[in-house]
Write a protein that binds this DNA or RNA. Structure first.
Lengths: 213, 213
DNA sequence: GCTCAACATGACCGGCCGGTCATCTTCCGG
DNA sequence: CCGGAAGATGACCGGCCGGTCATGTTGAGC
């Protein structure tokens, strides 16, 4: 793990290069997904390929550093919203934020959905995200804003699903995910509907293998 | 395009090999997705790599042939269900079938969601699928079984989204998609809810570029 | 059973990509 | 201003994969 923020005692240009590298990598991963070649990231940063590997031992380490950054941001949103009075509105805002992030970052949704690419730190962060989502969801349930049989894991999973629904339209209709988010929210609000047919996902780690699309 | 069913006037072993190849490729694509190497497909079929290219000019041709097969099957299901009395039940059955197919075939959902991989024939077939879904949806709307602002394109897109929602659980909970299908159906049934906020996707070709995850 | 065209084969090619390393450059303390 | 260490560089390596082709094999008609 080389990706920590050890900015102390380093040479000045190294710190600058690290920043350039992270910015370039963030943009490149967002635009092209995890498959983007290291060479292109280096080029975007105005560096040589070798320099990338001086800062991060492997491509996965670089990816993990960036994904952790985004996950922490989302977790922060969730933790801020937990204080809100209207838990239903808070949950809606969290989901809006989440799907928006997914729609803007190709690598992020690939990593979320494909556990085989994940560092253990990323796994842990997803766990924390799920915990935060569970807290939000619990309050919304208590306030009757969502049906009783919905869990935080459901919510996190739905983020990926909603984005994926609109993904084929992304180029032509970049905001189309709002339509399917609204649809899902209507489903979540159906407090009178019979319970969902399949038991809610439990405490299991999401995707212990990589049986995903 | 070498992938047509020109089984006439060919040598007997060639016909047999073509069948073996198609079976192996179907299984391999389903299991590992479109990234599965041609070499592995050949091995599964008990053939050499070169033989694969005698039957299909490129990997894409082979993939397209198999995807067309699956799409036709789904379209058939839709067209059969159009006769049903209960249009709501028919739509539910179509969606159940669709998500089940997606959950069982990794390549299929990759191709559906990533138009950049698609032959024009596959595009056309998806268009036909959408038409069939539109017919089913129209009847369900008329019968008041689903809200008024839902289209056939919505339904087709939802198939991918619902599967994707449950995808991270696929290994641990192979049937989890049923939960999220039920949730989506509750959203579709919310005839009293306000109209969906974003306009329904129109006649545009799904994904004219490949801006997808 | 003979012949030959059709078919199968797998070594081979070129391109790509993650990762390495000997060499060169640059920053910084003294 | 200088020396040396930390950092940057890009040619290079090995592995993988789609696709090709000269050669070997086999089925079908006679």
């Amino acid at each position: 793990m080389t990706g920590t923020t050890a900015t102390s005692g380093q040479r000045a240009d190294m710190v600058r290069n690290r920043r350039l590298l992270l910015e370039a990598a963030t943009a490149a991963f967002a635009e092209h997904g995890v498959e983007v070649p290291i060479g292109e990231i280096a080029q975007r940063a105005g560096l040589a390929k070798g320099t990338v590997f001086r800062h991060f031992a492997s491509k996965e380490d670089l990816l993990a550093a960036i994904m952790l950054q985004m996950l922490d941001q989302l977790i922060g949103t969730a933790e801020r919203l937990i204080e809100a009075d209207d838990a239903g509105a808070a949950l809606r805002e969290f989901m809006t934020d989440g799907v928006e992030v997914l729609a803007a970052d190709r690598a992020f949704c690939e990593v979320i959905g494909r556990p085989s690419l994940q560092h253990s730190e990323v796994r842990d962060a997803i766990g924390r995200l799920r915990d935060a989502a569970e807290a939000l969801t619990a309050r919304a349930r208590d306030q009757g804003a969502v049906r009783a049989d919905v869990t935080g894991t459901d919510i996190v999973l739905l983020l990926g699903g909603i984005h994926q629904t609109a993904a084929p339209l992304l180029a032509a209709e970049p905001q189309a995910w709002r339509r399917y988010l609204a649809l899902a929210l209507d489903g979540l609000r159906a407090t009178d509907a019979p319970d969902l047919p399949y038991p809610p996902p439990g405490r299991l780690r999401l995707g212990d293998t990589d049986e995903v699309c």
